[in-house]
């Protein structure tokens, strides 16, 4: 089977890998790099549990070939903490009770981060749209939406 050599930056760390031509970024992260936070939920790009950031954009890693992200910058939730400090999104998800089973959480937070990095003061409607590709069966989206709006306030330096 054809192999492709790629160089990607994952959570700030350069990785040189030989991957299968048909290998998904989700498999590369999980199987080769041991980054298990991005989840398999459907394999069809319909549930968003595998969402990571590629060059800052929320991307479905189960539909993305690893070979296609050669030279790109990848962020997963494992890279969000700074030292022992949680990212405001993480903090806010904990405090607002926005987590239940937690399986969709990494993907949802990464979608939210992609939004907040571009729009510091999004409307609730925008927040709902940003996570509309992240299916959640537990929370009813109420608390996650609140948590994202709260994180945005914090990141803007508001109380």
């Amino acid at each position: 089977m054809a192999r492709v050599n790629i160089k990607i930056k994952v959570n700030g760390k350069l990785q040189e890998l030989g991957v299968e031509a048909h290998e998904t970024l989700l498999d590369t992260l999980r199987e080769r790099l041991g980054l298990l936070a991005a989840k398999y939920g459907c394999g069809d790009g319909e549930c968003g549990a595998c969402t990571v950031l590629v060059e800052g954009n929320a991307t479905l890693s189960c539909l993305t070939l690893a070979a296609h992200v050669d030279g790109k910058d990848i962020e997963t939730i494992e890279g969000l903490e700074q030292g022992s400090h949680l990212h405001p999104l993480q903090e806010s998800f904990v405090e607002q009770g926005a987590i239940q089973c937690g399986y969709c959480t990494p993907g949802m937070i990464m979608s939210a981060k992609a939004l907040l990095d571009k729009d510091a003061d999004p409307s609730e409607e925008k927040v709902r749209r940003a996570i509309s590709n992240n299916l959640c069966r537990c929370t009813g989206y109420e608390k996650p939406v609140k948590a994202i709006l709260e994180a945005a306030r914090r990141m803007r330096g508001e109380k």
Binding site: R30, A37, Y40, F93, V94, E95, I99, G102, I109
Partner: peptide, 18 residues
Amino acid sequence: PRIDAYDKVTGRARYCRD
């Protein structure tokens, strides 16, 4: 807050598939 929130929000929580 939930006692498992930290594991889940940092991606450390391990599910059967992991």
